[in-house]
Design a protein around this nucleic acid. Structure first.
Lengths: 101, 101
DNA sequence: TTGATAGGAAAGCCGTCACTTTCCTATGCT
DNA sequence: AGCATAGGAAAGTGACGGCTTTCCTATCAA
């Protein structure tokens, strides 16, 4: 979760719902889990349980794509685009490929 | 295979072996399936069957990341980085997210 | 034509993943 | 204290993905 391994980033991006969550956080940073759920169902018709969305968010956090800050009983989520800037460049430049498989 | 859907591109990139194949094709374009197999095993210790590698290459082709040209009994594979240039930009710019989930 | 080489197709096995369900903890309000 | 809200943990299920195995087609060389 601290170091973003390429493996985790690619696996995190492999799921459509997780990509939608990133879309939501790009549009509006600092949302709670319940807000994310509400917007996913209202804007994209994704009718998953709160627990399912929570698991998706956890995967995004482990991949370093989402950072969270706890505040009382709320937990706000922010997108971190830093891992995204390297992944595609691996094949776009004719350089040496980076470490993690 | 003609139009690269985001779904296919992300799923194709989710597997470590497929990313290694792209690494190989970046380093040396126009390899046959047997060449790819040989280099994967010799350089990365990936000891998969030819059929398994063939399936991986097929996934990459369906995602638009690899183009192939048949020549006699040989089939040469070339990388196509075009789909890679859009996927990360979806979240890097604060624009509207693109169409495909 | 025979045999070797390059590649493809399909069935089956097994592990991983996404999701639900149920239960549990923690904070805030009254 | 009591209850509602926000979130987390864990087990179970069903489906999908990766890989092997077996068999088949096409090209080239002898």
């Amino acid at each position: 979760m601290l170091v973003a391994v390429a493996e985790d980033v690619f696996k995190a991006l492999a799921d459509p719902t997780r990509r939608r969550i990133l879309d939501e956080l790009v549009e509006r940073d600092g949302q709670t889990l319940f807000e994310i759920c509400a917007r996913l169902v209202s804007k994209h018709g994704i009718g998953l349980s709160r627990q399912a969305i929570g698991q998706h968010v956890a995967v995004l956090e482990s991949a370093g794509l989402v950072r969270s800050r706890r505040q009382g009983r709320y937990k706000f989520h922010d997108i971190d685009t830093e891992p995204l800037e390297h992944i595609a460049a691996r094949w776009l430049r004719p350089d040496a490929p980076e470490g993690t498989p």
